[in-house]
Computed example of a mutant assay.
Amino acid sequence: MRAVNASKKGILAEEAKKSVLLIPAVIMLAVFFVLPILLTVYYSFTNLALTGENAKTLDFIGLENYGKLFKDPSVQISILNTLIFLIGSLIGQQVLGFTLAILMKNKNKIFRSFAGPCILAGWVMPEIVVALCCSTFFMDSGTLNAILQSIHLKPVEWLYKFPMLTIVLSNIWHGTAFSMMNFQSALDGVPSDIEDAAKVDGTGRFQKLICIILPNIKNTIATNTMLNTLSTLGVFGLIYTMTGGGPGTKTLTLPIFMYKQAFVSYQLGYGTAISMILLVIGIIFSVAYTRLTKE
């Protein structure tokens, strides 16, 4: 019994030492992650402002900002635009990323070493650089219209007539490489003996995709979708640089609307209340994806 108790005490002492080593990480997490979230929640219930009478004193105003949100038609427009941008980007990044991963599967190293960096170039670029490149591509005298004119088609004012389409396509181009890398890793982990057995049984490519490949990488699909959702919800620089939320309110997403209210109209309290909508949307999608991969 004494030996058992001694061993238990030794184990507890080791666990205590490990816990002590985690204290700096916990402190940094609390200071740079938990505290900003708590302050954001608090400020959303205040009249915090940068100019005017409200800038002199910080008052707790309860649900006033949230009541204003439900009455503001721009909030409804920005939520709808955010969801359109999110769904379009997710579908494009997932489908295109998976297609590229399938096409590069089992290819020789020379081809993969050449194609991989070309695709990754768009992902490693800063968001502002991607926005400038895509603006140049879609502008009236840009590359896309030059291609259309070369085949005797009329140029199109893409950024004015199809602004949502342009920012969705730009975000797809920017984020597809991340999905491709995740799917490549997952596809490499699919047991080759199962695929060989399916090939011997005469299984077609479509059947193999539906019955073998997708079930084996479903967790990767869910995880990749969740990560892309959270990153897409926070896209700001790309949209602000390309369209500024316009023309009108056609590309007014929640991050753009939040920025305009907080730093253009100087209503920081109202801006943080808008940011809480983004937080709630992110939580809803995260919980949904987590439940999909519960097993």
Rank of each mutant, 00 (worst) to 15 (best):
G204W: 05
G189D: 11
I274C: 11
L268T: 12
I167V: 13
I210H: 09
D201L: 07
L227Y: 06
L238P: 02
T251M: 08
Q261Y: 02
M276I: 13
L187A: 14
N182D: 06
F257P: 00
K250R: 15
A222T: 06
K199I: 07
T241H: 10
M276W: 04
N216A: 08
T225V: 08
G245N: 10
G248P: 01
G234I: 06
K208R: 12
F236Q: 00
D188N: 13
R205T: 13
D193K: 01
L187T: 01
E195W: 11
F263Y: 14
N216G: 12
G237I: 13
I210M: 13
S275H: 09
L214K: 03
T272E: 10
K260D: 15
Q207V: 15
L254C: 11
N219L: 09
I256M: 14
N228P: 13
L169Y: 07
D193R: 02
G246W: 06
H174P: 15
T243F: 02
E195N: 12
M181Y: 14
I194V: 15
D196N: 14
A177G: 03
A177P: 12
L214N: 04
S275L: 04
K218Q: 14
S231K: 14
Q184C: 13
I217A: 06
S275F: 02
T220A: 00
I210Q: 12
G271R: 00
I256W: 09
D201H: 01
T232M: 13
L165E: 05
L238F: 03
N216Q: 10
T232K: 00
S231C: 11
I239S: 02
L254K: 00
Y270D: 00
A197N: 10
L187P: 02
G237W: 00
L214H: 06
M180S: 05
P191S: 08
G189C: 07
N171M: 13
G271N: 04
Q207I: 15
D188M: 12
Y259W: 08
L227A: 09
D201P: 05
P215V: 10
S231A: 13
M180A: 11
Y266G: 02
L268P: 02
F236H: 07
V200S: 08
P255R: 04
L233A: 04
N228Q: 15
N171C: 11
Y240H: 12
T166G: 01
L169W: 14
P247C: 14
D196I: 15
P163L: 01
L252M: 10
L227F: 12
E195C: 15
G237F: 00
Y259A: 07
T253W: 01
M180T: 12
K208Y: 11
K208Q: 14
P163I: 02
E195Y: 15
G234F: 04
D196R: 15
F178T: 04
M276A: 10
A177K: 04
V264T: 14
I194D: 01
F236P: 07
R205H: 12
Q267L: 15
D193P: 06
Q184A: 07
G175R: 00
L268H: 01
T253L: 07
K250Y: 09
N171P: 07
T251E: 04
M258C: 05
S275G: 10
T253S: 12
T220Y: 01
S231I: 12
T251K: 00
A262H: 01
L209H: 00
T223H: 05
P215W: 08
